[in-house]
Design a binder for these strands. Structure first.
Length: 615
DNA sequence: CTAGGGTTAG
């Protein structure tokens, strides 16, 4: 308004007026004054232009930003490097990388800020290769990267670049102590799974910094080392840092990985003060689902004001994994009604629910129509669900045909799914075939070697047994011992097959024998006959009688009152005999037993298991 | 004028 009232004002008053408009974030007013300035051939200084650009950014004025750009360069004027950098940054913030690049390309001279702005923009756009190319060009032009450059580029280099080499340059430049660089380094090492390197960067820190702590805790949590993540969290608290959303999210993820429901509940209390944080709520949902407490998850889900596709997907998969397939599918319907668009992961959960409930028709329907309905191409995980579905229905040949016709190459998990179907239908020949495919793709999978060797031993093919042993030896494969854990009085007890170090072991074994005795009265008989029942090969060294999960269950029942759910988790998959044992025990003793293996949950109640005897 | 940390499947 002011500009229109004072069309012939002097150059200095125009600039004063421009300053006022910028300060008040009056973008239309500022642009009008800029027009007037252009007519009068008046220019502002770089600082004033930068204020004007800030105003454009604050108001989302892309077009106005372009006008400013034109004005700055009008009459053949060559703006300062400082000002061009700001213009480049403006285009980056507006997501117009091509415009930013054009400006950058035309610069006569570029400093570290110009380069870093572009590199950071490419990193954010996940154009990692291009970001790295720019780093090389920058070095070639003799511009030295600073801490801003390194903390940006580090996010792009995971997997693409020699991280250690970059780390060396950082150290040489004396930039390692910068907290931004440090957290980026930790993050990059974590993303490449090099936790020891991440930890040594972390340990060199003297000053302490919230984000650096979050980086290292997140690193361990994401690499499924929940123990270390939780230890670090304790140290962080001891060092006096307050819990931040990102910290708690990682801590919850650690609880999820370790199935620590009780600790998860305690963390929940701290989450309450951030009750609007979407990511944190999603992590909480997942924790309750994966720790087998669907009721708690449901409560959280219902109370969440804001839900995104991850919230829905987590809840759908969580219901399905816990055996509530119908509820999962109903929730999927509500999701569609709510207008939320499902993604790749959502459909995995939906198909999982179908296969779990034996809903062959629905499963095929979603699988065949996911592309048209939701624009999602079926991937390995989707195929896996359908293989599972066919396997359950006993259509093993069809499952094999599906695998051979897959658009994405089958991986070890695909073949393991088929192997699971072979176990249920006692199809030994196909099991051997699947096991061989697994070992081609995952030569480190000790369980599959044991399984194959057990199959061969059973049919007295000793030469084949010998061959497997040799292969294991040359490849340095050690059998992973079966191990089960249980939390009693905030203490974690581990039961490892063949390990009797628990001081109460005598009592526990005695009690377990007593339980087995009672079950045998109602028809239980330990089934050692069929090798395929033990997919991961816990048997062999010791009798089935003392499989780690049986000991853990016995210990849990000794320690808890009848109402308390006995929650066990174990490192390898549950064997068929232990599965029968747990089902009968749950009924006979009127208990709820929950066992979590590396891939799924088994809820034993009333003589049945949520997995429907298929895993 | 340029920079760092968190959530879903298998």
């Amino acid at each position: 308004m002011a500009a229109r009232n004072a069309p012939e004002s002097s150059s200095s008053s125009l600039i004063d007026e421009l300053g006022r408009c910028c300060y008040q974030r009056d973008l239309p007013g500022a642009i009008r004054i800029m027009d007037a300035m252009e007519r009068h051939g008046v220019r502002a200084d770089s600082i004033m232009y930068s204020e004007l650009i800030k105003c454009c950014l604050a108001r989302g004025g892309v077009e106005q930003g372009k006008l400013v750009h034109k004005h700055v360069f009008s009459n053949g004027y060559q703006p300062t490097m400082f000002l061009i950098n700001i213009l480049i940054n403006m285009y980056v913030k507006f997501d117009l990388l091509d415009e930013a690049w054009k400006l950058f390309d035309q610069m006569r001279e570029r400093n570290v800020v110009s380069w870093t702005t572009m590199i950071s923009a490419y990193c954010n756009a996940k154009l990692n290769e291009r970001a790295l190319k720019f780093l090389v060009l920058m070095l070639r032009e003799g511009v030295r990267p600073n801490m801003f450059t390194y903390s940006s580029i580090l996010r792009a280099c995971a997997g693409l670049w020699n991280l250690r080499q970059l780390h060396c340059s950082i150290t040489k430049a004396g930039l390692e102590s910068d907290v931004f660089v440090r957290s980026a380094l930790i993050d990059s090492y974590s993303k490449m799974g090099e936790l020891q390197n991440a930890l040594s960067v972390f340990n060199e820190m003297v000053t302490g910094d919230l984000v650096v702590w979050n980086s290292i805790i997140g690193g361990f949590a994401q690499n499924s080392d929940g123990d270390e993540a939780l230890n670090l969290f304790k140290s962080m608290k001891r060092a006096g840092f307050p819990s931040h959303q990102a910290t708690l999210t990682s801590v919850l993820r650690a609880c999820t990985g370790l199935s620590l429901l009780e600790l998860g509940r305690q963390v929940h209390v701290h989450v309450l003060k951030f009750d609007q944080d979407l990511i944190l709520n999603n992590a909480l949902l997942d924790m309750y689902c994966k720790c087998g407490s669907v009721a708690d998850a449901n409560t959280i889900f219902t109370r969440m004001l804001e839900k995104d596709v991850i919230s829905w997907s987590t809840m759908i998969a969580g219901l399905a994994q816990n055996g509530f397939s119908q509820e999962a599918l109903r929730l999927f319907e509500s999701m569609k009604l709510s207008g939320m668009k499902p993604n790749y992961v959502t459909i995995v959960g939906v198909l999982f629910a179908c296969s779990h409930a034996g809903l062959v028709e629905d499963g095929w329907y979603y699988f065949r129509s996911m592309k048209q309905l939701f624009g999602i191409d079926p991937g390995r995980e989707h195929y896996g669900c359908i293989i599972d579905l066919l396997g359950r229905a006993g259509k093993l040949d069809e499952a094999v045909r599906l695998i051979h016709g897959m658009k994405s190459e089958p991986d070890a998990i695909t073949w393991r799914t088929l192997l699971g179907a072979c176990r249920v239908h006692r199809h030994v020949d196909l099991a051997i075939y699947a096991a061989k495919r697994i070992l081609e793709l995952d030569p480190q999978d000790s369980g599959t070697y044991i399984l194959l060797s057990n199959i061969y031993a059973k049919s007295q093919k000793w030469e084949d047994v010998e061959e497997i042993r040799r292969a294991m030896k040359t490849r340095g494969i050690k059998k992973e011992p079966g191990c089960s854990w249980i939390e009693v009085n905030k203490q974690i007890y581990a039961f490892i097959i063949g390990d009797n170090s628990n001081p109460q072991m005598d009592k526990i074994t005695k009690y377990l024998n007593h339980l087995i005795q009672r079950l045998m009265e109602v028809g239980y008989f330990p089934d050692t006959n069929f090798v395929l029942q033990d997919l991961e090969g816990e048997q062999g060294e010791d009798s089935l009688r003392y499989h780690s999960e049986k000991l853990a269950i016995a210990f849990g029942m000794m320690s808890f009152s009848k109402e308390k759910t006995v929650r066990i988790w174990k490192n390898i998959r549950i064997c068929g005999d232990c599965h029968v044992f747990a089902k009968l025990l749950a009924k006979k003793e009127n208990r709820i037993i929950v066992i979590r293996d590396p891939i799924r949950y088994h809820h034993f109640q009333d003589g049945i298991c949520s997995c429907g005897d298929y895993w």
